[in-house]
Design a protein around this nucleic acid. Structure first.
Lengths: 293, 293
DNA sequence: CGGACCCAAGTGGTCTGACCATTTCAGAAT
DNA sequence: ATTCTGAAATGGTCAGACCACTTGGGTCCG
């Protein structure tokens, strides 16, 4: 029997008993009065769900909860924190929303593992809400990735270089399959971010990159010159391996410049109908060539 | 009577009736069988709560929901989507978690307004989970802000320049009050981000900046040379106003370099006890001078 | 013995209906 | 006109039930 988590690790201090839950009948005397007796610790302010987040957060801080760990069952955890399961789930939902933990129906709730990652959904929704333009997206990517390429040239470890080489190879192998190509393209850039040695920047870059994925997936089919694109990646890889920071940055900059132009030219007018109303294609400097990122 | 939202705007397509909710007694024949009759549209997969997010997202995309708008009451919205209030709240919680909407007890639920912003909590938790170092944080800030300063020099509008000037003035005025100074310091950097003209980068930068706030707040008290700091800000402001992109970037770079060193030297060993176990202070190149950001 | 199948326990997901707590605002009191 | 007050509106919490998926051990064949 492997439990996956050690129940004893769960400290149940502070919030646990900050509430004297009443449980006596509610159906009788449903009349007015009868305020629930409730003891709230002064330092703990409102919103039960927030307390859940704080609790889990603290456990993470203290190292009681590590990536990959499984949380106790909701029913048990709720009882331990002295709150209802609904409220507990509300709190967990918050942590789930930001990507800190994931729930598997029938199995359990787990702390996210793998490399640090920020969910891209927030950025996507923000883009919808404020109607970001693809140009802004590309500009952001440019700023991030150019810097990242420079750092990668300085800090890349052998395993990172191996990954980069691998992805370049795969890109060559999938030149005739845009969708497949795009995947390796993205993995390459992800690998550059990882090679930078800065997890925060890598997480941010991946967030931006992921938020753009859908659009690129749609336009990549119309790409006409993947060959040029892959050559660029190869160049960037070589410069990173050679530790030539400034040149790697320059190459990445040029690459993204071209990718942006290509994207703009590939973006065809929507088939109208459904998703109208979204601001798009403001750039149309349309170059002849067409490369994918 | 001002409603704040137009109920008729809420399209209730797709998901609304994808489920034939049963309601017949459950207390009798609590025995086994009796699977609920449920019709699920093929294209709509699992998780009801996800559908809520998708619905709201679509409304935002279509422009039915704009920043500042109020959503319909939960009870009504739940009925309209054909789901329980609990599930609806679960979905809304997601959107709340990522900062897209906020609920005001007793008043209603509103779409976030103001400039686009990414919540910093995810980054904070990620930092706890993966034990990011202050150095990494600073490096990320450096990369972002240096680029942002360059963009600001190119794109800054008069109102942005006014804000920058204002904050520099306030910094001079609060030299003897570190906490107050820090606030204007942060506002200055926020203004630079806004002046860049790229909302995405601004949002990201603010996220990183906000995630660092607590630590800085703790160390700022020990800052010894705010004067030097404010001079730097003034220089940066002038370069941005003059449109000197590269020089603004260089100044910002130097400024953050010093700030990082200052932070490292101001960071005193914790009073042990409570928050032990967190990785910190790996840098200790300790310069003499001490400035805040 | 080994593999396919089955089923019961465990656990997350959803539903319902009630009550609590805060905000808001129209109507009464001043 | 201003202030006060209370009911309505609305989000927050709770309780207990049932549904749906996963997992693991046992059974049943081959």
């Amino acid at each position: 029997m492997k439990m996956g988590y050690n129940a004893s690790r769960f400290v149940c201090g502070a919030v646990c008993r900050n509430r004297v839950t009443q449980a006596m009948g509610r159906n009788e005397n449903s009349a007015i009065g009868l305020r629930r007796f409730r003891v709230v610790r002064p330092e703990e302010s409102g919103l039960v769900a927030e307390q859940v987040v704080a609790q889990i957060r603290d456990m993470i801080r203290q190292g009681s909860l590590k990536p990959g760990d499984r949380l106790p069952p909701e029913r048990e955890l709720a009882k331990r924190l002295g709150i209802s399961r609904a409220s507990l789930r509300h709190g967990l939902r918050f942590l789930g929303a930001i990507g800190v933990l994931t729930s598997r129906h029938g199995s359990g709730t787990y702390i996210a593992d793998g490399p640090p990652a920020l969910d891209s959904e927030p950025l996507r929704i923000l883009a919808d809400l404020h109607q970001f333009t693809p140009d802004e997206m590309f500009e952001a990517r440019k700023l991030l990735e150019v810097g990242l390429a420079g750092l990668a040239a300085t800090n890349a470890q052998p395993e990172h270089l191996a990954t980069l080489a691998e992805e370049v190879t795969e890109m060559y192998a999938t030149l005739d399959n845009p969708q497949q190509y795009l995947i390796h393209d993205i993995r390459f850039h992800r690998a550059v971010a990882a090679a930078s040695g800065n997890q925060i920047l890598a997480a941010i870059m991946n967030m931006v990159s992921a938020a753009m994925y859908e659009s690129r997936r749609a336009t990549v089919e119309r790409a006409t010159d993947l060959k040029e694109s892959v050559e660029f990646h190869r160049t960037i890889y070589r410069l990173i391996r050679a530790g030539k920071s400034d040149e790697a940055k320059a190459a990445m900059s040029r690459h993204l410049e071209l990718a942006q132009q290509a994207f703009a030219s590939e973006e065809a007018p929507k088939e109208n109908a459904v998703s109208a109303g979204r601001v798009h294609h403001r750039t149309r400097k349309g170059p002849r060539k067409s490369a994918v990122n």
